[in-house]
Design a protein around this nucleic acid. Structure first.
Lengths: 147, 147
DNA sequence: TCATTTTATATTGATATCAATCTAAAACAG
DNA sequence: CTGTTTTAGATTGATATCAATATAAAATGA
């Protein structure tokens, strides 16, 4: 009951090398940071990302949005429902395929995301400064290819 | 109702640069990957990380474990309770301070983590190969400093 | 000492996450 | 065409996550 279960070298190996652990850690820290940033607007970091994803000309179906966010599609269904209830997003039926529904920003959603972007820009500027001399965009690109 | 809410350059800026989004994406992908890997043992990626953290000589209090995992301490309380119910971890009272409780692996926990490590090593080897020529350990270190 | 503050953890309530499963529509095979 | 398979999405159930709050022990201060 007293000896370690693994060689100490193994514990160190996993602690120092495991990308899953390192990524979950960073994800939790950044999620909290941006959740607090957007809290005055009633948004979470994930809701902000989703609203931004819907702010271009791109009109994804739910499944495409799930791929973009690397979420399970059931998670997207639930998340969109929350935004829909708040009137930030509307679900539009597809003309060609009755199974498909495409989330789209409402006017209220557009107003809110426009308010959130300056907050994001200021906070992300701080974050970039903190991680110097690392290149944040390069890191983001590596992360996007990870999985 | 039809025009984009943000300049397209802003949408691209956030999509390409936001470390919060990039990290949440990667975290979800890796969580699913390692959850499936450990599923035959009845473990999630987070439970594996927690058991490994308790596999050294380190005997953290709950709050120290929370810091190590960058989790909220209430999340750790709940997660440890699940492991305790399964008999993988026991919560030991602290001699000097009655508020403090220290989670410790049980024999069953030791057996299970020893079974999980070879799975982790094989899968992480694949992951390392996939991200060549990036250095996975360097990436893990950057992520550990992020927040 | 005793009241106040701080610290460590637990509880509650809300959302996030995913696996497993379900329904309905579309695509396909014969 | 009709029966089967595939695809898109929704529902359910379990755990994860954190903010807000509560509790209880320790530390501090008058």
């Amino acid at each position: 009951m007293n000896q370690a279960s693994l060689p100490i070298s193994t514990v160190r190996e996993i602690r120092d090398q495991c990308l899953c652990l390192a990524t979950q850690r960073a994800a939790r820290l950044l999620a909290r940071r941006f959740d607090r940033l957007f809290a005055p607007l009633g948004l979470t970091n994930g809701q902000f990302s989703m609203l931004v994803a819907l702010s271009g000309q791109w009109k994804p179906r739910l499944g495409e949005l799930a791929d973009f966010l690397a979420m399970d599609s059931t998670t997207v269904t639930a998340a969109v429902k929350t935004l829909e209830k708040r009137g930030l997003v509307a679900l539009m039926p597809d003309e060609a395929d009755a199974r498909v529904r495409r989330p789209a920003l409402t006017d209220a959603g557009r107003v809110l995301v426009a308010q959130a972007v300056p907050l994001w820009r200021a906070e992300h500027g701080k974050l970039n400064a903190e991680m110097a001399p690392q290149d944040p965009t390069a890191l983001a690109q590596i992360l996007r290819q990870l999985g």
